[in-house]
Design a protein around this nucleic acid. Sequence first.
RNA 1: UCCCCGAUAGCUCAAUGGUAGAGCGAGCGGCUGUUAACCGCUAGGUUCUAGGUUCGAGUCCUAGUCGGGGAGCCA
Length: 474
Amino acid sequence: MSWLPVSAARKAPVGSTVTVKGWVRTRRDSKADGGLSFIALHDGSCFDPIQVVAKADLPNYATEVARLTTHCAIEADGEIVQNPKGGNEIAASAVRVLGLVDDPDHYPIQPKPHTMEYLREVAHLRVRTNTFGAVARVRHCLSMAVHRFFHERGFFWVHTPIITASDCEGAGQMFRVSTLDMVNPPRQSPQGPIDYAQDFFGKEAHLTVSGQLNVETYCCALTNVYTFGPTFRAENSNTSRHLAEFWMIEPEIAFADLAADATLAEEFIKYLIKTVLTERADDMKFFDERIEKGLLARLQHVLDTPFRRLSYTEAIAVLERAIAGGKKFEFPVKWGADLQSEHERFLTEEHFKQPVVLMNYPKQIKAFYMRLNEPGTDSAPGDTVAAMDVLVPGIGEIIGGSQREERLDRLDARIAEMGLPAENYGWYRDLRRYGTVPHAGFGLGFERLMLFVTGMQNIRDVIPFPRAPKQAEF
RNA sequence: UCCCCGAUAGCUCAAUGGUAGAGCGAGCGGCUGUUAACCGCUAGGUUCUAGGUUCGAGUCCUAGUCGGGGAGCCA
């Protein structure tokens, strides 16, 4: 008798005998046919459970089967039979209890609707629910699709370091990594600053906030590369779109400009959506019905429509026209200022109603490594850099990227202009000294992609064990 | 970090400053090839924490903790 995952048992030929193992979702009893119980059993292999029908003549029926409650662990042998209302079910010849649920009245997960906030408090058990099982399967599916997309295009996956002693990443507050005694750290003088020369790495070290600078080195040797790994930001961000530990995908392409970067981003997102719609149709149907009505239509619209590309300068004009037409914003719209969330939402959700790629931002609001555009690009009233943000309805910014400054003199000028310590950028500058090439890349927040694809509302519910300010349980 | 809101049974929520309740879930029983099952009965409470006001606080005040929505930072 062969052990099959529930997904396979649901498709097994009628008449075959199988064993299934998993956790009880619900048990319903009937007095018909001398008494029987219907057990909905799931093992995570697919969205739908399989129904195990256990009759009262089983030797352990009264003592065990009739006492099964939600999430008891069992294995069942039986014959695949046709359910009167369609689909496979298992006529059990044996049901073995592997693990009962202690004190079902207080078991945290009950066969009833729970709030996401509550389930977050029982993250070790929430994955047994419909919603979090579906999230876990979609997350896996998207992860594999990320690698397949790049692999099929000849990209190499580069394992950039998690720990970094480079202070030039500059993308946000960092978590310190240290083996020094925090209570009594070594100091350069009795009351002086902490002596990090005595620390593990001989200097200050942190968890990475981005693999970009490191991956640029591999890009300038392997041409097309990407990173996909954990990323850490110590910002005190308390929102439904931020985590302290999240996963980021950062492709970097050589001999490429910003337009090629935007094309890659669009093809990437569409590939991922297409894959998940095909491979996880069961879970996606659930999200469409129970999490966000109209999700599937929304994603199909994204697939069918080219992303709307426009310059930052044009976007400002669009927003100014909207204001002239009576649209009210809390924050002013002005060329040279960063767009507020409300502005981005207006563009992607109300005005264009599709993903939008904004390009060529004022240089003063963007990072030092972004390539300076020729004066007058997009008829902009000031200097711009070749940066892009991809905005999507419901989430806002899902991708941030740029063409990198490959010209050493311009890069040095920017580093000086922004008051950054030039000595920290030695190896990064070397890339511009030795065989420099135009190159570009972007960062995609994996959990934001998950929100976009599943319709889930809070980023803490699309990662197994979320880390956020005051939140590191489990 | 800022603004607003909230915390009462396992869960979701009620309760004029005056005896803490309901629905769901759970247990027991009934009914039924059931599938968001249905009907009846029963059990279930340190009202987030620490102070304060009051004859009396779930309710009012102060502080804190945690959660939610929005903003900022960003992915």
